[in-house]
């Protein structure tokens, strides 16, 4: 643990602490709107870390992470609405549910040597399969959606995640910072090295004694579990769930943007990507509103263009370049 800190370099340490201090203090000065944007930044940074663990470190492209997000969200939300089990407990049921789904997808794919594009398609297929399933699952409201009532007893208490933006702000901040720390720790662990080896060359990784199936499965376990926690957050923050939204492939794509733009396989890539992308997207929405144009797709067009430009010009992402500029280490893959 002390290792990460030790290797960060003086400038890196200073910048990290400064950023954290600013973010902790922000609610003192910020209005509701700014807080809501920052909540989104943290949320995408967090999910970005989860996805980046699988893709950026272990080299496995998943385009179906909405599956774990949705399972996490639905599990915790349904436990609350149906049985009155609160989210702090529900999350511990949501994690194994999503993790089991992830392990199943991984097992099916990697056991049978389904890799690359084929694996990505398998992940989409499972997410879509589940979406249609939930569309017809009556107990969670089917396609009509699942809603968190604000009037049920105890729903306004913080231990049931019934709080104002401040609660969600700090919760999201802790999630994002915690995930970044976890990823930094894993990157320096033997496990992290194994993931990099598997990403770089599976055959050579085998030749130095790495069980690549196992390494990938562990990456999936972490990634799906973390994404499920993000799903619980999603469910209680938005307080309504529709299969066509939460399991949608658009969700899966949305959550891979930050790490790709920030820098695949880097520790701060997802954070930087979310910091760039979310405010840009939000200001675009605000601008359209100010101009009185009602065009819901514009933000997505912008995201799509952003993806194309970044992957064409700077496939390594923004962070490695930025880190060099700032004179920081830790930019390399």
């Amino acid at each position: 643990m002390t290792n990460i800190w030790h290797n960060a370099g003086a400038r890196g340490k200073l910048l990290c602490l400064l950023l954290l201090a600013v973010l902790v203090a922000t609610p003192l000065a910020a209005d509701r709107y700014l807080l809501s944007v920052l909540i989104l930044v943290f949320y995408f940074a967090y999910l970005g870390q989860a996805w980046n663990l699988l893709m950026g470190f272990a080299g496995q492209l998943s385009l179906g992470h909405a599956l774990y997000l949705g399972l996490g969200a639905y599990t915790a939300t349904a436990l609350w609405t149906l049985f009155g089990i609160g989210p702090w407990l529900g999350v511990f049921i949501a994690i194994p549910v999503a993790a089991a789904a992830g392990m199943f997808v991984g097992w099916l794919g990697w056991r049978f040597a389904i890799e690359g594009v084929y694996f990505a398609l398998l992940t989409i297929a499972f997410a879509e399969f589940t979406r249609i399933g939930f569309d017809h699952l009556q107990v969670t409201g089917a396609s009509a959606g699942l809603f968190l009532s604000v009037n049920s007893p105890g729903s306004d208490k913080w231990w049931n995640l019934g709080g104002g933006p401040l609660l969600y702000y700090y919760l999201a901040l802790i999630l994002a910072a915690g995930a970044t720390f976890l990823v930094a720790y894993l990157r320096q662990s033997p496990l992290g090295y194994r993931w990099l080896a598997v990403r770089e060359d599976p055959e050579a990784a085998r030749a130095v004694g790495i069980d690549i199936f196992r390494a990938r499965m562990i990456a999936m376990l972490f990634s799906a579990s973390m994404t499920a926690v993000g799903g619980v957050f999603y469910g209680f923050y938005y307080r309504n769930l529709f299969p066509s939204q939460v399991f949608d492939i658009g969700r899966s794509i949305e959550l891979i943007l930050a790490p790709i733009i920030g820098g695949l396989g880097t520790i701060f890539g997802p954070v930087v990507g979310a910091l760039i992308l979310t405010p840009l997207g939000e200001s675009l929405t605000a601008l359209m509103e100010a101009l009185g144009i009602n065009a819901p797709g514009v933000k997505l067009i912008f995201y799509g263009l952003m993806l194309m430009v970044i992957i064409s010009l700077r496939p390594d992402g923004v962070w490695p370049w930025l880190a060099r500029r700032l004179g920081l280490s830790g930019a390399r893959k």
């Binding site: 695949l264 797709g297 067009i301």
Partner: peptide
């Protein structure tokens, strides 16, 4: 000839632009 995920991401971007352009 570039990495699979890079091709994929390029075309995912293109797809996103097209579908939302159509919607618009």
């Amino acid at each position: 000839g570039r990495a699979e995920h890079e091709q994929f991401i390029l075309l995912v971007g293109l797809a996103t632009v097209i579908v939302n352009g159509l919607l618009l």
